[in-house]
Amino acid sequence: MNATQDNRINNELALNILNQISTPIMAVNKEMKLIFMNEAGFELLGTSWEKIENKPCHEVFNSSHCQTPKCRMRQVMEGEDSCTVRNEITRHERTIPIEYTATALKNKEGSIVGGIEYLIDITERTQQEKKLQEQSRTIMEISTPAIKLWDRVLILPVVGVVDSLRAQQMMNTMLKKIMDTSAKVIILDIQGVAAVDTAVANHLIKIAKATKLMGCRCIISGISPAVAETLVQLGIGLGEISTNATLQDALSDAFDIMNLMVTPRK
């Protein structure tokens, strides 16, 4: 077997492998015109080599990165490192979410003559992600329950991390529940809150102010030693908002406000 023959067999084998890989692979020259695509690529695009040969790749892929500075193919041709990013391609009016990796195509001398790209259809993954997002939203919604503790006394236990979205939700839940139950006292228990930064404190203050406007007293309970020290270090004054170390104390205060008394049975 001489050297040229050896070369030919290798080329054939390599082409065969490329065509049988189920991931679409394509290559373009420096003018961004298609010089290669494997079978999986034709399948994804529903086309054949005759129809796309030497066409500019943006005409074929019609992706959201095409002909914008976001095009990673152009970036790697300009010498940047190979990278993987998400994108969307539109084919027969259907949008397919994909992830593609672009690498510079170099000749034997090592100079860049074009680019190689392989892409993965991530429709399923994006669907899963969407589902996950919806689920976390649901969890968030059920994680802010305003519970009636006594006649006209409500409690809202806050657990986990409070972000602006959740704070808004807490505010809505509370104000609506105050309206519905004509509550006079609402206890905001923050014992389970993972961290209190100035944004969280700001939200708590706003919630307390809003409830007050509705004629309802807001008591913040669950101020543990750690929370107390953090609030002091943050330099936050809770002003007129009543606070308590424990939920029990808060409830006892609530009873006082309501002119109720808990006595042992005679």
Binding site: V161, D163, A194, A195, V196, D197, T198, A199, V200, S224, P225, A226, V227, E229, T230, Q233, L234
Partner: peptide
């Protein structure tokens, strides 16, 4: 200790909230 954990976590939260804001 628990108080330090809470304090530092709050500072971390402050920084990450700042990025978002």
């Amino acid at each position: 200790d628990e108080t330090r954990q809470y304090l530092i976590a709050s500072a971390v939260s402050e920084l990450s909230t700042n990025i978002i804001r």
